[in-house]
């Protein structure tokens, strides 16, 4: 239990690592902080063009259908791919001073969360401009589903960041894994396209219920189903416990491996 108290003691470090990351990210670029909004918007345009015009996806308001799942997906993806190297890339710190090592993945994933929240400003703007409308009761579930996704991303970040210290390939493997994972998750399409017999397997993907919940809230304007929420929370919790456990086992040897 002392580890949790210690991580709390180092909350200022987590905060300043996030601040440092956000502040330095766009330093020197002409548009600066605007990129936080431009980036998702430009991605949206590319994806919409490919899937609506070229691939002829049949969903109504496909850009919104895609966008409300794509933004949470990008949060998850950057948390994991960047998370793989978040301990290794700070080897100077890890080798030279003590701090609870958990701080690094926590700061990284939290930083991505902040980025997602900024992207959500764009989502709300798009919904407003297109007069899609919003269901306030459904919106109440948003913080809960964000929290669940955050914990899931954190669990995987713990896991891959610890493994990467010992096996550098993981960082590159994760790039491929995440691409496959994206196509196997209901980001660009809905779960209704998956044949019935494969759905059970499909539901084991912890990102499936999370993305479904986001889409329920914004696209279908309805509260997510209770089953979806429970499933998301359970999978998220399991992944977090495993990831944290692995991290605890390996962190003592980080410095020796670097």
């Amino acid at each position: 239990m002392t580890i949790f108290r210690e991580i709390y003691e180092y909350r200022e470090m987590i905060g300043s690592l996030i601040k440092r990351d956000l502040k330095s990210r766009y330093k020197g670029s002409a548009l600066g902080f605007l990129w936080s909004f431009l980036n998702p918007l430009l991605q949206l345009i590319v994806y919409s063009f490919v899937f609506k015009i070229v691939m002829r996806a049949s969903y109504e308001r496909y850009y919104l259908f895609l966008f409300v799942a794509l933004v949470p997906w990008l949060f998850f993806m950057t948390s994991v791919t960047g998370g793989a190297s978040c301990v290794w890339s700070q080897k100077d710190l890890v080798n030279k001073i003590y701090f609870p090592r958990e701080v690094l993945p926590i700061a990284h994933v939290t930083c991505q969360l902040v980025n997602m929240l900024l992207s959500f400003v764009v989502i709300f703007a798009v919904i407003l401009v297109t007069r899609h409308g919003m269901n306030l009761a459904a919106l109440l579930y948003l913080p809960a589903i964000m929290l669940v996704e955050y914990l899931l991303a954190l669990g995987i970040a713990f896991f891959v960041s610890a493994i990467t210290v010992f096996l550098r390939d993981v960082e590159y493997i994760m790039g491929i894994v995440m691409m496959a994972w994206q196509f196997l998750s209901p980001v660009m399409y809905g779960i209704d396209l998956i044949p019935e017999k494969y759905r059970v397997i499909y539901q084991l993907n912890p990102m499936t219920p999370i993305l479904m919940a986001y889409r329920d809230i914004f696209y279908y304007k309805q509260p997510p189903q209770l089953g979806t929420l429970i499933q998301a929370t359970a999978l998220g919790a399991i992944v977090l416990i495993i990831g944290f456990g692995v991290f605890q086992r390996l962190k003592r040897h980080f410095s020796e491996e670097m």
């Binding site: 180092y10 470090m13 300043s16 502040k23 330095s24 001073i97 701090f99």
Partner: peptide
Amino acid sequence: DLSGKENIYINAAIFG
């Protein structure tokens, strides 16, 4: 890229 003062905050936070 950050100022001396900002770095004081970051560095001191790393010391806990």
